[in-house]
Design a binder for these strands. Structure first.
Lengths: 137, 137
DNA sequence: GTATTAATGCAACTTACTTGCATTATAATC
DNA sequence: GATTATAATGCAAGTAAGTTGCATTAATAC
């Protein structure tokens, strides 16, 4: 049986506050990366009206626990998504701003190529495509 | 004979100020993307002590003229590089913060895969690898 | 129920970047 | 070379995203 993030945190001695569980639930039910601001607004809608500072601190905490990942897209705000999604990338519609997940079949070859070309010890990579989605075309 | 950016701008009726030519020269001689702040500091070193506002406004101008490109890396500052470099990506050392250019042979296959998978009209994409460079390993 | 301390809210701060406006300086024309 | 139009600039103030200090609140252990 797989332990939930909440159970895991609890067993590590962290407190389960309404902000904490609400943010985890929100990110778990959001199928694309979202910003701190969106998290704040969406929590408010659901009745969990915490301070934006708390949202930022909780994001920092969840990052440190490797429960979520930070993502840079083309604008200035950082986005976040659950870390336990299987590895994928993103495609952003420059028109309607939709963000979709993307799986790349040829990814392993790509990584091998870069590893042998650069001699870097690569820890992570990000690949984002920008374009106009079928609906906006 | 290929016209320089300076000549091109001049023939379009834009003025060639010391800030403008210094920033173009700096970016042309810098083999990796740099931030507005770095541009500001480096200009100062060379004796072109312009206001940071001017740097930002010049960046905006050079972007609008498609002379430079804007690049998002993992941190909060935007980076800029000359747009006429042949298409490439970046690899960032998470230790010494060095940024290197990267060419990917299998890139066309990747693009074809994403195009046919998503039906997006893809305009651009960014691919960045993060890791530890050979010197820092 | 009490005690401990993690988590929170608020206000003030920082950083990256932008805007308004008065001034300066490039370059076209005389 | 002087005059002129206006692009470019500097300064100060503003914004937006994110951070920090500190006093207060509340989750959990006992």
């Amino acid at each position: 049986m797989i332990k939930s993030h909440i159970n895991n945190l609890q067993s590590k001695g962290f407190r389960i506050t309404s902000a904490r569980s609400a943010i985890i639930n929100l990110l778990e039910s959001t199928p694309h990366p979202i910003t701190a601001n969106s998290i704040h607004k969406l929590l408010k809608k659901v009745g969990t009206d915490v301070n934006i500072t708390t949202v930022y601190r909780e994001i920092e905490f969840l990052l440190s626990q490797k429960i979520i990942n930070k993502i840079q897209l083309f604008d200035t705000e950082l986005h976040y998504e659950m870390a336990d999604r299987t590895h994928h990338h993103h495609i952003v519609c420059t028109d309607c701003k939709a963000i979709e997940d993307l799986k790349i079949d040829s990814e392993k070859d790509l990584l091998d190529e870069v590893c042998s070309d650069t001699r870097y010890k690569i820890s992570t990579h990000s690949l984002t495509f920008y374009g106009v989605c079928p609906a906006c075309k």
